[in-house]
């Protein structure tokens, strides 16, 4: 059975990829929609990787975008300042992939450092420490003139596109899904449910907590690198506390611990926020009310409250779509 189930996600991803490419090629989808899809996919990586830390292992990180920032700055520095590549460079794509992976590894190292306090701290105390780390990372970027300081790291070549981003998102989903369904994943769930009990039955809780931070940070770093090569810049304010909260919303709105939920929420909330632009304008045009873009976030925040009131466990709860599941659950 297992061999048959494995490629289902791959087939789905390929169909999705081809469909979007065809729609875009025939100009049914414009560049704007494609841009939102790209952004959503990057948020999928961020949300799923944060879900590994917060949802599956039950730690509380408030500094996830700090990891993304490390990935963005390290990969951006490599591609822009060290190799000075541009999209027409002969080995550009290879260097880009190398830069993104090094960015992810650098973020993983930071994740390893931040994982340590989690050995001593729990719950909200840990949240504060991760928040503090995130802010320290931001202060550091703000003060290194080599990477632009408050001007930001500019002129990053645009290597991220639909293809590279969807490949990265697919790999993230597969790796984290496989991890969760492995014995390591069971151990992580045990840490979430009851750390002391897990310890008593022989789970090395230290190892699994640090592992969750390292792997989560690695993928966040990848997402940060992709973001930098999509926007062609990296700026310290993109990686602050408020941005981390945005990702947090996605995992809880999607359902804690559900990879499917995080994925759906990343798409739904990104599209919602953009759809409201058009929705508000349509209402303003139809009714003649003097309302503009300033009301978009008012509606967004109200919808967020309603989602949580009516789907209290998030969109998916802890369930996974059949597509994501590796094994059949009885």
């Amino acid at each position: 059975m297992k061999q048959l189930k494995l490629p289902k996600l791959l087939i789905f991803a390929l169909i999705f990829y081809s469909a979007i490419q065809i729609l875009y090629g025939t100009e049914i989808l414009n560049g704007y929609i494609l841009h939102i899809i790209n952004q959503s996919l990057i948020y999928v990586i961020l949300a799923v990787s944060l879900n590994l830390i917060n949802g599956i292992t039950g730690q509380f990180s408030l500094g996830h975008m700090g990891f993304a920032g490390v990935g963005a700055y390290v990969s951006g520095t490599i591609s822009t300042l060290v190799f000075k590549i541009n999209p027409s460079s002969p080995n550009g794509m290879l260097i880009f992939i190398f830069a993104i992976i090094v960015g992810g590894l650098a973020a993983a190292v930071v994740g390893f450092l931040i994982g340590f306090p989690s050995l001593r701290l729990k719950g909200d105390y840990l949240a504060i420490v991760t928040l503090g780390f995130g802010e320290i990372i931001r202060t550091v970027f703000n003060n290194i003139d080599y990477v632009g300081g408050p001007r930001g790291l500019l002129g990053i070549p645009k290597f991220s596109n639909f293809t590279t981003i969807i490949v990265a998102a697919f790999i993230t989903l597969v790796v984290i899904r496989n991890l969760v369904e492995s014995s390591h994943g069971r151990a992580m769930l045990a840490v979430r449910e009851n750390e002391l009990a897990a310890e008593l039955v022989g789970v090395n809780t230290t190892r699994y907590k640090v592992m969750a931070f390292v792997i989560g940070a690695f993928f966040a770093g990848i997402a940060g690198g992709l973001f930098a090569h999509l926007l062609q810049m990296a700026h310290p304010t993109q990686f602050g506390f408020i941005k981390s909260v945005e990702v947090l919303i996605m995992i809880y709105a999607g359902g804690v611990g559900s990879i499917t939920g995080s994925t759906i929420a990343a798409f739904a909330l990104t599209f919602l926020s953009e759809g409201l632009r058009i929705g508000i304008r349509a209402i303003a045009d139809a009714t003649g009310l003097p309302i503009g873009g300033e009301w978009r976030m008012v509606v967004y925040s109200l919808l967020l409250i309603f989602i949580m009131l009516f789907k209290t466990e998030g969109l998916m709860g802890t369930k996974e779509a059949k597509l994501i599941r590796l094994k059949e659950v009885q």
Partner: peptide, 22 residues
Amino acid sequence: IFEDDKGDPAEGATVYTKLIQQ
């Protein structure tokens, strides 16, 4: 056609894309 960028580079990139493509 006036769009909000929230003072955020990512939002800015989206808005420019929207104005031009959409």
